[in-house]
Write a protein that binds this DNA or RNA. Structure first.
Length: 921
RNA sequence: AGGCGCGUAGCUCAGUGGUAGAGCACUUCCUUGACAUGGAAGUGGUCGGUGGUUCGAUCCCACUCGCGCCUACCA
């Protein structure tokens, strides 16, 4: 084996073998375990958040596969209606074409072409991450069978009256020319103005003042509202004002919605262009006057001179005219939330159009109950609150989009305005007895992408067919995703699953934190702080990284800042860390926190961990070049100890995984591997294997323990670090007598061979204490590790003597001793540095080694520390309430502690005195 | 406005009603036959603040300060 672990060489080769052998597909008839991948957007690439979630999903998948479950991790992508259409339209634009020039059919061909060409990016990334998904079952939301499921669900919901078509206000994107759902609206505060307009009373007796942030909409006003309790205006209710510019007479109405304390207390009502006004309009039977076209220019319902103007130009003209008429009371600066489309960034308009909606309340109720009853469990559970909060205030879902790319709405219209919904035009004709001569036209619109995503857990398994996969894997075991799509996706899957697949789509919802950059900022293209997970795996130089971050920016003016920040944060670019180091980092970072700052330093630490493991294996294969053989073996205390420690670690990893505490699992593995196996056990086998006097049986015991423990450790690490464990396992498994072609299909380790052994653990604890005490003296006295030390033991108990007899070799080797001897009772000790292990005193003679002054300083420091601790303990024991009320065992422990501290202090004091007197003499 | 979360070592974060932990960084020593992507020893924290419950609070409760996120119709 090479001296340094080199991930680049092995990862691709290993993955190709796994995939080529078909090992990712579910096997056997055992208990099913299934995870549905949250389908990434087919236009996109995997970002750090994906890599994070994929690591956790893969760890769970590999863990369950090794436990023998029939394990399916289902991959796929969604068609991302708007995003994909935008990408292809931009491509056309470069050719000087628009989508209308091609027509619907050719345009869709172009989209499929584009998908064939660039849709592979994500799957390439997934392969590099080691994702053990069943590629043979990869799905795309626009696949024929998934589309079939979409149609089926639409038709059934329609037939039940849970889908309806209606003309109402929607969030309209005047750039993309489509409706959006509430969730696709991003509202942020921006600077604007509050214009106070004077509306003259129709009878000529003065005016009212209304305040508005969007003065151009006044052309569509159909009322002015006041609060019914507002004494200032009560006498005006029922009268009317003359709407300036438009010249219409509109009523003054009373509605409790109006806040008398805000502005003038009068509100202009524009039912066709404001969601609140729409509702007020409904309540009062007001006319709805739509003044905008689809592109947000003014239409024929406004006075001639305003027609055709863009909305913002219209605003300037309206304001100017009102000012010149003396109808502008005042203009104030004002911050207000401005709704923008999440894709286009355009300011959205509430606009009256015909759209399709899902009536959501009847679906929401059972979905709420599923979480309340525990049929679905959120982890961490506090996310259930967020879910409830949204579900209880949910509104009908606008599912139609004015796009070409997506699932076309299965509705047909005849010439008389009748609408027919069905699985196909043929079905519609048959069911409604429509003659072939009756012309039918299919609805032009497509469905929201999330509509098909909501069906993902069962559409990918073949629904509506009652397939074997559906029966076996539904409901799935766990959904792993980020909190940002609880509403978009999680809630909708629950609703649809309960409605159509006879039950919840998953048992657990594990909500991961959000990966942020080193400064806690959300990673985004526009901020220029994204990192491609593959660049951590393969490394990237600074210039390439800068180029990557600044190319294709929506706002090119941000580039200089991005360049600067990137050069500051990654002056050397990013080194190659390999997949396993990145994955282990993600696991270690997977705490219950909802924000996770990504720290490259951590990846470096775990890259080192990979190297540590690699070198441990290198050592093992050097020590055990061939199988140790089945002849009788004897196990040393170290052998028994490491086996017992392995069992504890294994149990810790298992319970951590049950609780989705990947951070605990990672810590348990890390600490066992580094601090127990490498720091202690590998050192402990050296004196055995390198000692000619040691028995063959003892050596065989050590060799077996080495290979068996390492082999089992590799299996335990495999879900987190699949590549390095496979590479090493191929060499080590035969030595440990374990057959099998791959670690990924090897059984998860069990207790056999790793029995608990508290005797070995306490003996090892004693050995470690002695070694540490000597090392402490060595370290604090700056004695070279190369220098062998003589060690004398004083005040040894019978147990100490007994242990010493059994473990002397270990002590000599690990503490770097030249000699080790127990002082006889009454035998005087030479001038020494002292270490204490319980009552046992460790003496390192100072002659020629240790400066008395240094030892005095060391002892004094230790004494001060111990006295401080004793002081605290005494205070506690001096408190009558503590002694009287605390549990007896707590008090007893405190007393024992005090006694031990006192003893330590006495020893230290005596020693200090001795060294001092000698130094003086 | 409502909801949720966070504040622990220089940095990034675990954690527990009973002696505060890790990684990185830092200091000193060491190239000893697995590993310098290493080994050994060490420095470093009034656990945001105040009050309460308790024998005992970093942990539970109340208030408070600071920060963040999500929902929402104040024109």
């Amino acid at each position: 084996m090479d001296k340094v672990y080199a991930p680049q060489e092995i990862e691709r080769r290993i993955y190709e073998r796994w995939e080529g052998r078909g090992w990712f597909a579910p096997q056997g008839s055992a208990a099913p375990f299934c995870i549905m991948i949250p389908p990434p957007n087919v236009t996109g690439t995997l970002h750090m958040g994906h890599a994070f979630q994929h690591t956790l999903m893969d760890a769970l998948t590999r863990y369950h596969r090794m436990r023998g479950d029939a394990t399916l991790w289902q991959p796929g992508t969604d068609h991302a209606g708007i995003a994909t259409q935008m990408v292809v339209e931009r491509q056309l634009e470069a050719e000087g074409l628009r989508r209308a020039d091609l027509g619907r059919t050719s345009f869709l061909e172009r989209v499929w072409q584009w998908k064939a060409q660039s849709g592979g990016t994500i799957s390439r990334q997934m392969r590099r991450l080691g994702d053990s998904v069943d590629w043979s079952r990869e799905r795309f939301t626009m696949d024929e069978d998934l589309s079939h499921a979409v149609t089926e669900v639409f038709v059934r919901l329609y037939e039940e009256g849970l889908i309806y078509r209606g003309k109402r206000l929607v969030n309209w994107d005047p750039v993309l020319l489509t409706a959006l759902s509430d969730l696709e609206v991003l509202s942020e505060e921006e600077d604007g103005h509050l214009w106070h307009l004077r509306y003259p009373l129709a009878d000529g007796n003065g005016h009212l003042v209304v305040a508005t942030t969007r003065p151009e909409t006044m052309l569509g006003d159909t009322a002015v509202a006041v609060n019914p309790e507002d004494g200032r205006y009560r006498h005006l209710i029922g009268r009317s004002v003359r709407l300036p510019l438009a010249g219409r007479e509109i009523p003054i109405i009373a509605d409790a919605y109006v806040d008398a304390a805000f502005g003038s207390g009068c509100v202009k009502i524009t039912p066709a262009h404001d969601f609140n006004d729409y509702e007020i309009g409904q309540r009062h039977g007001l006319e709805q006057i739509n003044i905008l076209t689809a592109t947000a220019t003014l239409n024929e319902n406004v006075p001639e001179r305003f027609r055709g103007l863009d909305r913002f130009e219209a605003r300037r003209r309206v304001v100017a005219e009102l000012e010149s008429l003396g109808l502008m009371e005042k203009i104030e600066p004002h911050r207000l939330p401005v709704p923008r489309g999440d894709r286009s960034g355009a300011v959205l308009e509430p606009w009256l159009t015909d759209q399709w909606y899902v009536k959501i309340a009847p679906l929401a109720h059972p979905a709420i109950e599923a979480v309340e009853s525990g049929a679905i469990r959120f982890v961490p559970e506090s996310w259930a609150k967020t879910y409830f909060e949204w579900m209880r205030n949910i509104r009908d879902w606008c599912i139609s989009r004015q796009l070409w790319w997506g699932h076309r709405i299965p509705a047909w219209y005849d010439g008389r305005g009748n609408v027919y919904v069905g699985r196909s035009e043929a079905e519609v004709r048959t069911r409604h007895g429509l003659a072939a001569s009756t012309a039918l036209r299919q609805d032009e619109d497509v469905l929201d992408t999330w509509f098909s995503s909501a069906l993902w857990p069962f559409s990918t398994l073949g629904w509506p067919e009652r397939t074997g996969e559906l029966a076996k894997f539904y409901p799935t075991s766990v959904l792993v995703t980020g909190f940002d799509i609880i509403f978009f996706w999680v809630a909708r899957m629950i609703m649809m699953g309960l409605k159509f697949a006879d039950g919840v789509p998953f048992r657990d919802v594990y909500i991961t934190g959000l990966i942020r950059d080193h400064d806690g900022q959300k990673m985004s293209k526009s901020k220029g702080n994204i990192i491609d997970p593959l660049d951590i795996i393969d490394g990237i130089d600074l210039e390439a990284l800068v180029a990557k971050r600044t190319s294709g920016l929506m706002q090119p003016h941000l580039a200089p800042g991005i360049v600067k920040a990137t050069r500051r944060e990654f002056p050397q670019g990013i080194p190659a860390f390999g997949t396993d180091a990145l994955r282990f980092t993600f696991a270690a970072l997977a705490t219950q926190s909802r924000d996770i700052r990504f720290d490259l330093g951590r990846v470096g630490g775990y890259r080192n961990f990979c190297n540590k493991l690699w070198n441990a294996a290198r050592f093992v294969t050097m020590m055990v070049p061939e199988p140790p053989g089945a002849e009788p073996a004897e196990h040393s205390v170290a052998d028994r100890w490491i086996r017992a420690r392995f069992a504890r670690m294994l149990a810790g990893v298992e319970s951590a995984l049950t609780d989705y505490r990947f951070d605990f699992a990672a810590t348990a593995l890390y600490e066992f591997t580094w601090y127990e196996l490498c720091d202690w056990y590998l050192e402990l086998v050296k004196p055995v294997l390198q000692d000619d006097a040691a028995s063959e049986a003892l050596k065989r015991g050590a060799r077996r323990t080495l290979v068996e423990t390492l082999e089992a450790l590799l299996r335990t690490l495999h879900p987190f670090m699949p590549f390095i464990t496979e590479e090493i396992w191929q060499r080590v498994a035969p030595l440990a007598g374990r057959a099998g072609e791959t670690v990924m299909l090897a059984p998860w380790p069990g207790a056999a061979g790793f029995p608990p052994d508290s005797q070995a653990e306490s003996d090892m604890g004693w050995i470690q204490s002695l070694v540490l005490a000597v090392r402490q003296i060595r370290g604090e006295m700056d004695i070279s590790p190369a220098r062998r030390l003589p060690l004398l033991l004083q005040n040894a108990s019978p147990e100490d003597r007994e242990r010493l007899a059994r473990h002397q070799t270990f002590l000599e080797r690990l503490a770097g001793l030249e000699s080790l001897r127990v002082l006889a009772a009454g035998e005087s000790a030479p001038q020494s540095a002292i270490g204490l292990v319980g009552g046992l005193k460790l003496l390192v003679p100072m002659a020629g080694l240790i400066d008395a002054a240094a030892e005095i300083e060391r002892l004094a420091k230790r004494l001060a520390k111990t006295r401080q601790e004793l002081e605290k303990t005494r205070t506690k024991l001096g408190n009558e309430s503590f002694v009287g009320r605390a549990p007896a065992e707590v008090v007893a422990a405190e007393r024992a502690r005090a006694a031990e501290l006192e003893h330590t202090i006495a020893s230290l004091e005596a020693q200090l005195e001795r060294v001092r007197s000698l130094a003086a003499g």
